[in-house]
């Protein structure tokens, strides 16, 4: 039997899992958006989140360049603007020459971009943890039934990711621009001869994606009180989420990220010491560390690729015979 206390603990862990998942969801949706519109797997996704996290350090604390310091709300707004500008800039400078070239070239380019971004962050801030300005260190939390509570940054992430997933779904389904983005994704040339500007679709996609991702990076940093280089690892973790959800599906990325967040939290808690879940089933003393939470999502990734290659919500290619 599961006692009341145990189920309360389970609920609390699950709540934190959902919160963490919502943070991942922002980064994962940024990834899925790019894949959906341009067919590119963006391997710089973790590094873009990292840049987002450190933008606040740069602008909010005056670390590295002290005359840049502005108040915390302005720093957040500025970071969002930088995200949009970065998206447009990347299209102009980096991606435009690759229009019409194999997608693989662009994927390799994202690898290089990732290296440049993380190298740049390292160059400016070093490897150490950098605290956020006080106004952005959230010490409040929202109380929930069963004595559980959700920390402020998680609560914001849950709300924000819900708003963004809904907004993006409506955008792609009901607006003409959304149709155009999907059309360009489905057949670039056929869209071009209809007068669709591929340059503009790429710029819109990257600007949207980078903005969402930098906000995700910021909130990830806020949830631990400041930016650290480990945010970069999110790029790998969200791969599990988007593959689970179906690479080109934005709601899929959202659901996948929540599942991955849950797996991480539950895995870290219940596998610590290795007894809680495994012991009643098998009579073996296993000694997993808390790091097992990091392994579970990647096991999920492998299983999904084998069992359901298009993920939960991914588009299966229509083959007519």
């Amino acid at each position: 039997m599961v006692s009341a206390a145990e189920s309360a603990t389970l609920f609390q862990i699950a709540v934190e899992g959902v919160g963490l998942g919502a943070l991942y969801a922002l980064v994962a949706m940024g990834f899925a958006l790019i894949y959906k519109v341009t067919g590119v797997l963006n391997f710089a996704q973790g590094q873009i989140a990292l840049v987002g996290a450190y933008l606040i350090v740069l602008l909010g604390t005056g670390e590295a360049i002290d005359w840049l310091q502005v108040s915390a709300p302005v720093a957040v707004a500025a970071a969002v603007v930088v995200g949009i500008v970065l998206g447009i800039l990347l299209e102009r400078v980096v991606f435009r020459p690759f229009i019409g070239e194999p997608v693989l070239s662009v994927i390799i380019v994202t690898l290089a971009l990732g290296g440049i971004f993380s190298g740049f962050v390292n160059f400016l801030f070093g490897q150490n943890f950098k605290g956020y300005p006080d106004a952005l260190v959230l010490d409040w939390s929202v109380g929930l039934p069963l004595g559980a509570s959700i920390p402020g940054s998680y609560a914001i992430a849950v709300l924000l990711s819900l708003v963004i997933v809904a907004a993006l779904m409506l955008f792609f389904r009901y607006t003409v621009t959304g149709s155009i983005l999907r059309a360009a994704a489905s057949d670039e040339q056929a869209a071009m001869v209809l007068g669709v500007s591929i340059e503009r679709t790429i710029a819109v996609a990257w600007a949207l994606s980078i903005t969402i991702t930098t906000v995700g990076g910021m909130l990830l940093a806020m949830s631990s009180g400041g930016a650290s280089v480990s945010i970069e690892d999110t790029g790998i973790i969200i791969l599990a989420a988007v593959v689970f959800g179906g690479l080109d599906s934005i709601p899929g990325a959202f659901v996948g990220a929540i599942v991955v967040g849950l797996l991480r939290e539950l895995g870290s808690y219940y596998f610590e010491g290795g007894t809680a879940i495994v012991a009643p089933v098998v009579d073996v003393q296993l000694n997993f560390g808390p790091g097992f939470g990091n392994i579970l999502p990647l096991i999920l990734l492998l299983v999904v690729i084998v069992v359901k290659p298009y993920g939960l919500f991914g588009t299966e290619r229509i083959e007519r015979l």
């Binding site: 149709s179 155009i180 059309a183 056929a190 869209a191 229509i318």
Partner: peptide, 13 residues
């Protein structure tokens, strides 16, 4: 045709 889009969405383009 844009396969994933409906006929109406195709026309919209």
């Amino acid at each position: 045709v844009f396969e994933d889009l409906t006929v109406e969405e195709n026309l919209r383009c």
